[in-house]
């Protein structure tokens, strides 16, 4: 679509901009201010310069948390994206089953995050939880408070349970938006199922997948409530992700300066990854017909 060049459009943006800026820019500035000082209270503070950044960048615990975080985010993306697409492909398309399945599949998304943690905490307990009890009955010594592998697997499973529906829902809607004529053309050409998926369905899904993957990446990078309730970051620090290290530092120990410095580093990392991803996708999509439009 050809867009009209019109700077008066700023007036339509303005209310939104003011509201978001109020919630975004003032706190961000404050965090930057914290990061260069040792703050006890607004009147007792010392300028420390870049010291906190240096300390944080060289802190082995945080480096480990960062690596764990990347491992976690990539793992869940690798599971949730294909699984979500798969679910979207097999979801019924009409009738009462379609509505029923849609509602059931969406359920986990609408549960408050700490309740998700509680659900899985209950579900995986060895004494009163179905999964914990079941696995023990099957002869596997399942214990998320002792074994890091179990804790890790449980958190991944919980995240898959919680968030695959988002990808599935977005893809399902994307699939429903494909006109029937495309499939008819494919039938006439005797296209295989794979060809239909690769050349008709997947291209139409690109946009929703970009949104889905970006949202999932950003949220998984900030995951806090669920592992906090489920494992508390343990055993040891095997499931302590970035947000939790941060919260412990900021609220638990009241170390505002270091945690502010660290959250800025953390923010820059997410910003870079998301920007590269976003630009790569938008760039790839830009075919000659739309060139120069945006």
């Amino acid at each position: 679509m050809n867009k009209v060049r019109n700077n008066h459009a700023w007036w339509l943006i303005l209310p939104m901009l003011l509201l978001v800026a109020f919630s975004a820019i003032i706190p961000l500035m404050t965090v930057v201010n914290y990061s260069v000082q040792d703050v006890f209270d607004p009147y007792t503070r010392f300028f420390t310069g870049t010291e906190w950044f240096q300390v944080m960048l060289n802190d082995p615990a945080l480096q480990a948390a960062l690596l764990r975080q990347f491992a976690f985010s990539l793992t869940i993306l690798a599971i949730e994206v294909p699984l979500g697409i798969g679910i979207a492909l097999i979801m019924p398309k009409q009738g009462w089953q379609a509505s029923a399945v849609l509602i059931l599949v969406t359920l986990p998304l609408l549960i408050p995050w700490n309740v998700v943690g509680s659900i899985w905490q209950i579900f995986t307990r060895g004494d009163i939880g179905l999964m914990g009890w079941g696995l023990r009955e099957l002869g596997y010594g399942y214990n998320i408070t002792r074994s890091p592998a179990d804790a890790w697997a449980t958190i991944v499973l919980m995240d898959v349970w919680h968030w695959t529906p988002l990808i599935a829902l977005l893809c399902y809607s994307g699939l429903r938006a494909i006109p029937e004529a495309y499939y008819q053309a494919a039938r006439i050409d005797r296209a295989s199922k794979w060809a239909v998926f690769r050349f008709i369905q997947l291209p139409k899904l690109t946009n929703v997948l970009v949104i889905g993957i970006l949202l999932r990446f950003m949220h998984s990078f900030m995951i806090y409530a669920e592992p906090f309730v489920l494992t508390g970051g343990g055993p040891g620090s095997s499931t302590t992700f970035l947000s939790q290290s941060l919260t412990t530092m900021a609220i638990g120990q009241q170390d505002l300066g270091p945690s502010a410095a660290f959250s800025l580093i953390y923010f820059l990392i997410i910003l870079l990854v998301s920007w590269v991803f976003y630009t790569a996708i938008m760039h790839r999509q830009k075919d000659p017909t739309t060139q120069g439009e945006r």
Binding site: I103, L170, L175, R176
Partner: peptide, 21 residues
């Protein structure tokens, strides 16, 4: 949550392709 999905189920099932193209 269940109530909310129930209301929008048809809009979702109708299909949407998000994003800027």
């Amino acid at each position: 949550g269940i109530v909310v999905v129930y209301f929008v189920r048809n809009h979702i099932a109708k299909g949407f392709a998000l994003g800027r193209t």
